[in-house]
């Protein structure tokens, strides 16, 4: 129960700082004077949570103040993001920004309570990882060309599972269908785990999954890689050909970064950007990320802000084509 109480205390501290403006000035003078709260807009145990935990270990040591993870899952990660967008820009509230809440949500949600670009100070891209098409080993078509032919010839088309509606995994299926004209039937699940179970049990022959979540099953051979949605072959899985190599121009990455409420003072932005860069330069941290199939990103605060803005534009037509829309 203590672990449940700790973030609350940090939250109270944040609230107190918000109430008294001079406290913001003081926090600026000797930042960070108090523990920092990192809001992770997903449940514990997922890829985002894992990335955040790997990062905060190093960050706590470098900043001299504990960086406490607060999981605020809900509504496609938009609940936690909205909360940070509304927080005080004192450097004590940070967000694990990501492709779902900052890239896809602006096009997916009709009444989003924040602007993914303007309501945040984007600080650093942490990691990126590609989306990958996997299949049951007994599924006959091997290459994407064969998969497309199968989808055209099978009387009912081809079923492809994903971790849920509106996820990047789902959107890659849409992109694939658009690019090839293949008759693809999207089968959404509640998370990647149950979807993978059904692919292994041959209920659905194929699945679109993020690499960290599929990596273990690819290594154990319970599923086979069909195509990787990265620009070049992935160093951890060089045997899986990319979509581009197989004639389909689709690159789809999940990404995670650190952002703060808009108007974060420049000295804090610089300090955070520098320290995050140093944590990510640590070979041990890089090795842990590489293990799960994620690549460390290197972008300046301005670079990351541009990156987020570009992502919002990139996903808009794809979301539109998918027909997914949430109030």
């Amino acid at each position: 129960m203590m672990s449940g109480l700790l973030p609350r205390r940090a939250w109270l501290a944040g609230g107190a700082a918000m109430a008294a403006l001079p406290a913001v000035a003081r926090a600026q003078a000797a930042w960070p004077a108090q523990p920092i709260r990192l809001v992770v807009p997903f449940a514990p145990g997922g890829t985002t949570d894992l990335v955040a935990r790997l990062l905060t270990q190093g960050l706590t040591a470098r900043l001299g103040q504990p960086v406490i993870i607060e999981n605020r899952p809900g509504a496609g990660a938009t609940v936690g993001s909205a909360q940070v967008a509304a927080a005080a820009p004192d450097g004590l509230t940070l967000l694990m920004s990501n492709v779902a809440s900052q890239g896809v949500a602006p096009s997916l949600y009709r009444n989003l309570r924040y602007d993914a670009v303007r309501d945040f100070t984007h600080i650093a891209l942490v990691v990126e990882n590609p989306v990958v098409f996997v299949a049951n080993p007994r599924f006959v078509p091997r290459s994407l060309t064969e998969v497309v032919r199968f989808a055209q010839e099978a009387p009912r088309g081809l079923d492809i599972a994903s971790s849920g509606s509106g996820s990047t995994n789902h959107l890659l299926i849409v992109q694939f269908g658009q690019a090839t004209g293949a008759r693809v039937n999207h089968v959404p699940y509640r998370g990647a785990g149950p979807a993978m179970t059904d692919v292994i049990a041959e209920v659905v022959p194929m699945m679109s999954d993020s690499l960290p979540s599929a990596a273990g099953h690819l290594r154990s051979g319970s599923v086979r890689g069909v195509a990787m949605a990265s620009a070049a072959r992935h160093p951890a899985f060089p045997e899986i050909a990319t979509f581009r190599e197989q004639g389909i121009d689709a690159v789809s990455n999940s990404w995670f970064g650190i952002s703060a409420p808009a108007g974060l003072p420049a000295p804090i932005v610089e300090r955070l950007s520098r320290e995050i860069g140093l944590v990510l330069a640590d070979p041990a941290v890089r090795a842990r990320f590489a293990e799960i199939g994620a690549t460390v990103g290197a972008l300046s605060p301005a670079g990351y802000a541009d990156f987020v803005a570009a992502e919002v534009e990139k996903w808009r037509p794809v979301v539109l084509a998918s027909g997914a829309q949430v109030d």
């Binding site: 609940v79 997916l108 959404p188 997914a324 949430v326 109030d327």
Partner: peptide, 20 residues
């Protein structure tokens, strides 16, 4: 809460806390 297939919210009566 949120419908798994379409991502639409159901029976939440506009209460954001019920979205999950």
């Amino acid at each position: 809460g949120t419908d798994v297939q379409t991502g639409q919210q159901r029976f939440t009566f506009g209460v954001p806390e019920l979205s999950d």
